[in-house]
Design a protein around this nucleic acid. Sequence first.
DNA 1: CGATATCAAGATATCGATATCATTACATTT
DNA 2: AAATGTAATGATATCGATATCTTGATATCG
Lengths: 336, 336
Amino acid sequence: MSPAKKKQPVAAQAGLTMADLAKLAGVSKITVSRALGDSPLVTPETRERIQALARKHGYKLNVSARNLRLRRSHTVAVIVEMKPSSSRTMWDPYPLSLLGGITQELTSAGYSVLLTTRHDAANAAVQAADGLILLGQGVHQDAVKLYDRMGLPMVVWGAESDHDNHIVVGSDNRQSGVSVAERFLSIGRRHPVFIGNSDHPEMAQRLHGFVDELAGHGIKPLLLQRVDWTLESGVAAVHSLASRKVHFDAIFACSDLLAMGAIRALVELGLSVPNDVSVVGYDDTPHGVSFLPPLSTVRQNWQEGGVLLARKVLALIDGQPVASQMLPTSLIVRAT
Amino acid sequence: MSPAKKKQPVAAQAGLTMADLAKLAGVSKITVSRALGDSPLVTPETRERIQALARKHGYKLNVSARNLRLRRSHTVAVIVEMKPSSSRTMWDPYPLSLLGGITQELTSAGYSVLLTTRHDAANAAVQAADGLILLGQGVHQDAVKLYDRMGLPMVVWGAESDHDNHIVVGSDNRQSGVSVAERFLSIGRRHPVFIGNSDHPEMAQRLHGFVDELAGHGIKPLLLQRVDWTLESGVAAVHSLASRKVHFDAIFACSDLLAMGAIRALVELGLSVPNDVSVVGYDDTPHGVSFLPPLSTVRQNWQEGGVLLARKVLALIDGQPVASQMLPTSLIVRAT
DNA sequence: CGATATCAAGATATCGATATCATTACATTT
DNA sequence: AAATGTAATGATATCGATATCTTGATATCG
């Protein structure tokens, strides 16, 4: 048998500890700790001296030790709904935008962001977190309950629902539905269609706002149920309308892709956008701006949403009272 | 003065420790540790008994304590180039896809993913990591050097470069340039144009592959320098060609948006795609499939790229020899 | 001048898990 | 039967930082 050579992990960084620094500076560990922490309990001179020493030797704080002592991880786990091979969510730019805001806010508050997919949310990583942020359209009751049982401060992105009581941050989907309805009414549309998935909580609220506002004017929109949010789905939706000889003059689509698909189909049918039919999409994707004709759409403020999610978890961790909050959306009226 | 009520952070979870479990089970701490770690040093029965007890009481391992003792954080920091307000990267779907693969692989190896933006990469979080993964097209020498100085195992996504020696994982940009050139040659195109930013390392390699392959057939493509990767930029590029009365019959654009813009401009100019001009984009974005005409493009395998990035850091952390690696891309030929 | 207040710094205990070495109980060998 | 081996478990020290309680030195006061 050949002698199996054991691989030596590099991990154990020989880095200095506070004790080492203390010896170097001729003070005690605790003084080093205080100096590095800018505590007022040390003279400015010793503080400077020790900080300089730390810099010089490239001292690295051992975060684990600190967290252990403080009984906090200073870490928030972000659970993203990422199905390994699914096309949609992985590609969807929105979680990344939210992540941007979240990361910004958390790191500037001295917290770290632990990224996790829903599938492996049971792992040790999440156990270490001080708080939880849940992202992803598919987050349903069961998942939320699962995490809830971890007893951690938790904030969810999405639609507010009556029968559960966790903190939610999201776009004001209802209001966006109202806005689109108002817009359609103001330009004299009387036969609007809604394209989207009413089983999806966020979309359902858009639908509600849309329906309610129109109802106030005696109008009942047509609901065109569409599970996919692809361009093809939008095309198919309009074709189905045409084949059923439905009369309509406005479309509120729950995604820009749906909207663009719808417009393409309309053009194919010889209809003019926006003369014959008005179309409003959702999300303000980059493609929409340069679409022909430029797409009217509803814009969500994801950056701010992320920041808000972060603030709420932090507040929860801090034991402060926190309420759910819906962010206003803006209707971007372009050419459609 | 009213007595300032001090807010009480909830953080300090009263959770059980191994010592508590040990008392409950009538064994020593270390036996609990071994039982939970499936060590062969405890009888199957005691292991079962203790694990059941842990489950029953919802025992949560204190990761900080463990990491402290093991002198490892079991954490890899992912540094994403996210400029707070920039439009591009934040929206760009690709980092998320990479993140998907990374997260999958790392968590299944028992590691956590620490998400960081480049800006706050100096924070304590990163110091805690066992390894580093750098994402983002704008990662340049200075940044890499900065992180290099942390002395951590590091892997970078992007283009391989001669004059630095860190591990790189990326798409084989050069080969993709060659493939597109081959395609153009095979369909008899003799006057190709390259649209992109030659200062961008990854794009530069696409250009090199493209140029080299064409040179073998005595053809020298025209380079159209474009810093923006937007649709408008694509439109402008083609218009500039037209106004200069350049003759061309093929376009290799470095992003799908550029390609779509180019096609739009071509159509406006009364040229037919692909009859008069062939166009190939890059990235295989969802919009490309349903573009009219469906866009030919180069697809990168991001999921796998993420997995590979993760594997390489893990190997580095483990002290194994690791080499850079470029992933093959695939040319998706559709209608353009 | 003695007593107390104030300030800087140190000693010690502690957070929760695990590596290492020691111990016990029982089985096997000669 | 004594000696050796083996398997299961335990005792202790340790990872590196910080909270808490002291200590010593200097300043301030009546």
